[in-house]
Computed example of a mutant assay.
Amino acid sequence: MTTADAVRRRLGLGRLLPLGGAADGAWLAEQAADVVLRRVAAEVPGVAPGRLRLALADPEAAARPAVPPPPSALPPGPLRIEADFAAVAWEPLPATASELRAALFTAAAQLLDLRVAEVDLRVTDVLDAAPETLDDAPPPGVRAADPKDPAGTAASGAAGVAHLTATLGAAVHLAPDHVRVEVATASGHHPLEVVRAVREAVTAALADGRPVSVLVTAVGM
């Protein structure tokens, strides 16, 4: 992979969002969250989702992570979702917005294990026809990686792991003072449960006391 390719794939992940609390040592790619939240938003009657972004709700109140974070990752703290959407003309807009806000809050908590404090919505258009259904194309830039060492083999066999990924470099980054593992989760498994299973498996495989952080780059639905 060329340097340009690596940069494009890294930028395609979006922000690296804190998953769980400071002690969890876990992050979720914004792109992975976008896929899930956009699909949920599209299921709200009369809604066509547009631009969606996630950021820290209060950056000054963010905590220090317990393990070294991935490059440019956001520190642990509650998030804010900013979402644009178009809505059909024949449904009351306040009711549609309320349903969309509730759907995004619920999906973030129950499907992604993200702590969301705020959902800010903006109407960008009024539709004269029902919106088209979103396709289920996989997110670009996230490719499966084969395990190449004991840590990778342990991580790939952990409960809920669909496969390893290698977007930031190698699927397993072994530093002198920590280990970072990239994974995609399988359908039906909560990201935090998978993270904890990966951490336990890698810690046991290495048996050297290095802390383990986990980056989830794709979430199975």
Rank of each mutant, 00 (worst) to 15 (best):
A41S: 11
A57K: 01
H189F: 13
A23N: 11
V7S: 13
S72F: 14
V123A: 12
V219I: 08
A103G: 08
V126R: 14
V202L: 12
D136K: 05
A108P: 07
R115G: 09
L16V: 06
A32M: 04
R10A: 15
G141C: 08
E60N: 09
V219G: 00
S213R: 03
H173I: 11
A97E: 14
P70S: 02
P94D: 01
E43G: 09
A197W: 10
P191L: 02
R9K: 14
T203I: 05
R180P: 01
A207G: 15
A57Y: 03
V202C: 12
V219S: 01
T165K: 02
A184F: 01
E99G: 13
A95Y: 07
G188F: 09
A155C: 13
P150V: 15
P150E: 14
D136G: 08
L79H: 01
L121A: 02
P78K: 02
G77I: 05
V198P: 03
G157T: 11
P49Y: 01
A145H: 04
L17Y: 00
D34F: 11
F85Y: 13
D84N: 11
P191M: 01
R115P: 09
P69W: 01
R8L: 15
D5F: 12
V194C: 12
P76D: 09
P68Y: 05
P211D: 10
L174P: 10
E132N: 09
D5E: 15
A170L: 15
E193D: 15
G152N: 04
L52F: 06
A61W: 08
L54K: 01
G12W: 00
A62H: 05
T217W: 00
A95P: 07
